[in-house]
Every structure is written in C-alpha cells, then in structure tokens.
C-alpha cells in the first residue's frame, strides 16, 4: 500500500537516545521527512525535562538508556497530566525477542520499531501515529494506547491479553520474522534462537502491528 506523503513541517519531535550516532541518524531522517523542530535528549531523564518544557507532539525513544530507560520514560509520561500523558511514543530498540517487545507494549508505547531503522519503517510508524491514532485504555493497572486500533463492539471472542494466545503479530514489508518462528522460540525456552540476524540473515526489524491484539 503506498504511503501518503505528509507535510510534517509543523510536527515537534523529541528523540531520546544515548548513542550520539544513532541520534544523528534519527535526526537526519526526521529532517529528511520535513520535520523542522527536533529536540534531542541523551537519556530518559533529560527527555522527561524536554517533554515538560518543549511540548513535543511525538517521542522517539531508545529502549536501553542509562539513568531512565525507555520503559521508565514511557511509564512516567503516561503518569503526567493530560494532554501530555497521551503523547504518541515510538520505541526504537535493538531487542528482537518477543518477550522484550511485549514488555515494551505493556509499558504503554504506541509503536515499536526494531533496529536497524530504515527510513521507510520509521516513516510508516510516524504516519500511523498521526493518521491512525489509538484510543487509550485506562484500567486499575494500565494506562496507555489501546492495542486495538479500532473498536469492535460486537466482538465476542476470547480476551487475548495475558492468556498466552498468539497476539497476531505480523511484520511489515519483508516479513523477516514470522509469528510461528517467535512462538517456537518462546515455546522451547530459547527465545531469540530463531533470530536470523544472529547468523547474518535477514535482520529482524520493523515489527508492525495489525488488527486486534497488537502493540
């Protein structure tokens, strides 16, 4: 499906990433998309200050960072007063194991992107945050984007959250990692054993979500 070409010049984006090279790569991509206002933080703590002081529209966060990591940053943003708590957050992570991706989802991120980043993959997620915004769910134990992008009031099926039933993860574009591969890895207790990137095969990346039970 062709991606719509968007004018992102008014968008304010915060990058939280401790690695200076990856920060520069992300900044160049955003500028390439036409984003004019980019804030940068070297860790989650600095990112939190910038969220409060600079009112970004969107946050891109690395997952493994010193002091305050991506999961903690996400949880702290979700605890802030409205409208800040609704900020779309895209987690960018080199983790490729399913349990890590599920943990990211459960901390309240909006989208996840596994490294290596590609210009198309990141644009797809930003466009998704803008054009297909998620509703939020508030429960006693969770506040964050609804895993379902669209409500299905007539749905009468099994509740998938926490049941161990396959979550319907799919990958976009090249389909480098299939649900069955991941399930097999988890089932055998060898999470990540199927990761083709470990053997120099097609890198696992761009975990995309679709339909129900998604990130």
């Amino acid at each position: 499906m062709p991606l719509p070409n968007l004018d992102l010049s008014e968008l304010r984006v915060l990058i939280a990433e401790d690695n200076p090279y990856m920060r520069q790569i992300l900044r160049m991509m955003l500028i390439g998309y036409g984003v004019r206002t980019v804030f940068e933080a070297e860790d989650g703590a600095e990112a939190l200050e910038l969220v409060a002081s600079s009112a970004p529209d969107l946050v891109l966060t690395d997952w493994l960072m010193p002091i305050v990591n991506g999961a903690e940053l996400t949880r702290m943003i979700r605890q802030m007063p409205a409208p800040t708590c609704f900020l779309p957050i895209i987690a960018i992570t080199a983790h490729t194991e399913k349990r890590r991706i599920l943990a990211a989802r459960d901390s309240g991120i909006t989208e996840v992107m596994c490294k290596p980043v590609s210009a198309r993959g990141l644009y797809l997620r930003i466009a998704n945050c803008i054009l297909n915004p998620r509703d939020f769910v508030r429960s006693p134990s969770f506040f964050g984007p609804d895993r379902r992008r669209f409500q299905a009031p007539l749905h009468n099926g099994t509740e998938r959250r926490g049941t161990g039933i396959a979550d319907g993860y799919t990958l976009d574009e090249t389909g480098e990692l299939s649900q069955s591969q991941e399930n097999a890895a988890v089932a055998t207790g060898r999470a990540g054993a199927s990761d083709p990137s470990r053997r120099g095969g097609a890198p696992v990346r761009q975990v995309r979500t679709s339909g129900q039970g998604t990130v």
Binding site: L6, A82, F86, F136, S139, P140
Partner: peptide, 24 residues
C-alpha cells in the same frame, strides 16, 4: 466501569497535511 476507553484530546492530524498529488 473500572476500565474505560479514553479518546486523546489532541489530534495530530490538525498539524499535518497530506500533500496534494502535485506536491507529492
């Protein structure tokens, strides 16, 4: 009523424009 769906108050579509065919 312990769980609720909340619609975010801000819609980023108001800050972003889909480029026309010519612009695209």
């Amino acid at each position: 009523g312990r769980n609720e769906v909340v619609k975010p108050p801000r819609d980023l579509r108001s800050k972003v424009r889909v480029l026309s065919g010519r612009e695209a």
